[in-house]
Design a protein around this nucleic acid. Sequence first.
DNA 1: CTGTTAGCGCATTCAC
DNA 2: GTGAATGCGCTAACAG
Lengths: 352, 352
Amino acid sequence: MSKPKQVTIVDVAEEAGVSIATVSNVLNRGGIRSSKETIRKVEQAAERLGYRRNTMAAGLSRNKTYEIGLIVPGLNGYYGQLAEHLQVEAHNRGYHLSVFSSGGFDPEIERRNLEVLQQRRVDGLICHGLAMGFESTRSIVNSGTPLVLINGWDWPEDIAIGAVNLGFASACEQSVKLLLERGCRTLCYVSSKRSKAIDEQRHIGFIRGMERYGNGINYEVADAKDLDVDVFLRKMREGHPAPIGIVAFDDHVALRLICGTLRLGIELPEEMKIVGINNDYIAEHSYPGLTSWDIPYTFQAQMAIDKLLSKLSNQQAAEQDEREINVPLTLIERHTTNALKGGVNEHVAKGN
Amino acid sequence: MSKPKQVTIVDVAEEAGVSIATVSNVLNRGGIRSSKETIRKVEQAAERLGYRRNTMAAGLSRNKTYEIGLIVPGLNGYYGQLAEHLQVEAHNRGYHLSVFSSGGFDPEIERRNLEVLQQRRVDGLICHGLAMGFESTRSIVNSGTPLVLINGWDWPEDIAIGAVNLGFASACEQSVKLLLERGCRTLCYVSSKRSKAIDEQRHIGFIRGMERYGNGINYEVADAKDLDVDVFLRKMREGHPAPIGIVAFDDHVALRLICGTLRLGIELPEEMKIVGINNDYIAEHSYPGLTSWDIPYTFQAQMAIDKLLSKLSNQQAAEQDEREINVPLTLIERHTTNALKGGVNEHVAKGN
DNA sequence: CTGTTAGCGCATTCAC
DNA sequence: GTGAATGCGCTAACAG
């Protein structure tokens, strides 16, 4: 009951009446072909005994784990989705994805996780929004473990080569453009600074949008953390020309804002317009329906895994051509960005 | 660059001028004590060389991995939170938690994940909401891998011994009681059948509440999947005596309902009252604020890990006393369950 | 095609 | 206290 000696290839070999090497051969397919007969015998023996290959022994022997590590700040919302998709893609390519959450950008936890992953001799690493500095990260890279960054915009080139970046900046830029086109006369970006680079990038895009399309129009930036939504909204409405357009850090933040407008009796598409990011469950089901940017998780995950695997095979080879790959988001319009008044078009009607 | 031979205890031994056995001793603490001097030498050598213990080799050698596997239906919302907390607790006890998502109750994926985990020789398994049948699960247990079920209410005793169950049933039962006390004259449970046992349990609680406190009052059950919220709400309002009380499967479902009432102009605390489950971000930030049941994630996680570890040490020993452990939820009242009219008490005001 | 053998990196007796 | 030797389960050359 307590640790009934697991069956090994030795057992299978005996049972099948062949050598352990043969067993290893037929059971991992890659190697030399065996006679039909042998294959059958081995497979049946394995089946009969309930053999299961010992990952550790295999990894130890061939000096390769087929395990890749993932470090994300958390498991909720966007990060959870990403992790899930990465897991699927990794699996599809014969790899195991070990998921680690760094508990919301805690550098300490991040270090520990990294240590564990290195000890596990993972073949590669995918990191998202690292809290630790460049130097620490560089030391990983130099230690020989291939690294793919997701959303590592502001990282030094030697580390970020092959990074997979989501187009948050241009999404925000386009959000600004959209809001202006919809008639907004004041804009605001509600940030989430604790999300670090993820936020920074949106901010940059927002500013760029203002510079490019704003024509000197008034804009503000507020941080969601500790934000008193009601006070904020009231101030926006009273102190600035309407309608007011808001770019929210993500759909969660947007939900808070939407609820604020409901509470204060602010007319949503008329007096104020909001666009979120992530196209969460929230965006689809909130009332009014929230305009948001959809993330192509599957594509993103594929890109990341592909990048990593290519780094694994090509020993430092020429993948120089494509340094960073950019994954664009797509806008899903819903009610919160309707044009001036009651212009409910089909898309919007469906979206909510 | 491409696989720079990782440093091993052999290297450290040479560098420190001792034998590999000694290195192993001082580096894993458990064993025999060594002289201060030796310890220093070894530690410095290890430090200097950047030694990192090879998990596979260690695991192989001592026939124990200190890895425990987790299988959950997904990584979003409740499940993601749970996974994160389990990871922390596992780590606190020196274990590594390997998280697997079965992609929303896909039995196929579940099988694969299980296979992988077994091949990794995980010391134990924590499973939540398995899609596979009893038999398959039992075969795991019999294979010698300790298993702790989370929310495995309806499972056979021999498997579910030591299961950690959340008190969803009594939460729902109490929800019914609450809604009745608040004056509701029609009740409804909006389910999510695809969530299997998780849903079943809530359903049971709801029914029990009706039987116990309902006095023959009218009640209904509808499933959230493919539910046309607006049609549903309209029918509820028109065909039944108000106010109507709704117990939602979770806060996500509740959000949909809340938005429906906003859309249709149904007065929320007056004509209809809603209580959700999970006390998500949504519950706190929706408008009106959603009454919901909070889940003690940390406690739940500790219980699960504790149970598993005790199964690991006690070779089949007497843990018979406590078969299943029940983790109670706590109600967080917000605006959606206010008493008859405008009775906004402090708690509610704060809650929203 | 199949069997023999030598490690992979570490933990663990058991002598010294 | 410390070190030499053995084995964990498997893979990867080689030999046959």
